[in-house]
Design a protein around this nucleic acid. Structure first.
Ligand code: SF4
Ligand code: SF4
Lengths: 144, 144
DNA sequence: TAAAAAATGTATTTATAATACACCTATTAA
DNA sequence: TTAATAGGTGTATTATAAATACATTTTTTA
């Protein structure tokens, strides 16, 4: 039970950018800092760009900047955008509908609720909260 | 983001057994019913036995029975016993402590809370709840 | 003593995430 | 106008873990 590094790396990028405001940051700089695959990061950054979390600029002098202030970037939203699926159990996958307990399985409902509770916690925090290391979530949510 | 089939199969076994009380049920019967690997199930059942959820009996006429009534079997407890880890993100793995945001990463705390919320929902239901297809969890928790 | 059933250990297969590689496109400044 | 820099795209490969298969052993009862 673990999130993909794809999603975690995306969050690391946002944290790095938030800590380096008012400048263009390159993918290479971030990949070096975290000692992770630059090629992998290129695709993650591209998706962060297409989802509107970062603004990417090509060419000399280009790089990345956050598209919104950290307090306007919701963590749950980022995770939902980056993680490729939330099939909590097999039967959540539309292409795997052969469990004999379908369609009326109490377990499935329970896992749906558990998954919602998980995402609800992520929804309660912004990038700004995470930067401050706030453990009681939501404290920084109302800041612009 | 998906639980292993190992854990889901374990839960299916418990549901199957709860629906077939007062008799020995064989692994082969359950594997056939769900159309899943018998070899895989053997190991799952063995672990269910060693964790005290089922009683296994070898030899002719043997098989499985629930060791406790369904209302005494907590789903969260089963999932915690069967799923091999809950490393919500990389840094939860004790052997992977090389992220540069350690040890003070607000994200890590947030994921810890999300994971707790997830498991808390599973903790709120018993096998008896699941059998009844109860969506408002915990209703059947106080039944012996 | 033969059949039935679970237990154990190892090996193989499969699925997918992660990474690597090659090449393309856009931008800037010398 | 050209070289350098930066992200974009598509495909191929590698690594890892989960799932499955296989072989053999142990236990129990009819
Ligand atoms: S047992 Fe229930 S939760 Fe698991 S795959 Fe089947 S229908 Fe889904
Ligand atoms: S970014 Fe934070 S949550 Fe992610 S691996 Fe690093 S320390 Fe853990």
């Amino acid at each position: 039970m673990e999130i993909t590094s794809y999603t975690d790396y995306a969050l690391r990028v946002l944290i790095y950018l938030a800590r380096s405001p008012n400048k263009q940051t390159t993918i290479t700089e971030i990949a070096d800092y975290f000692n992770i695959s630059r090629n992998h990061l290129v695709k993650i950054v591209h998706q962060l760009g297409s989802k509107g979390f970062v603004k990417t600029t090509r060419g000399k002098g280009g790089g990345l900047v956050l598209q919104r202030p950290p307090a306007m970037i919701n963590i749950g939203n980022v995770v939902r955008s980056m993680e490729c699926h939330f099939n909590w159990v097999e039967c959540f996958n539309p292409t795997q509908q052969h469990c004999r307990l379908l369609p009326n399985c109490g377990l499935k409902h329970l896992f749906a609720q558990a998954g919602e509770a998980y995402l609800k916690v992520l929804d309660s925090a912004t990038l700004a909260d995470v930067l401050l290391g706030i453990t009681t979530v939501g404290l920084n949510s109302k800041i612009l």
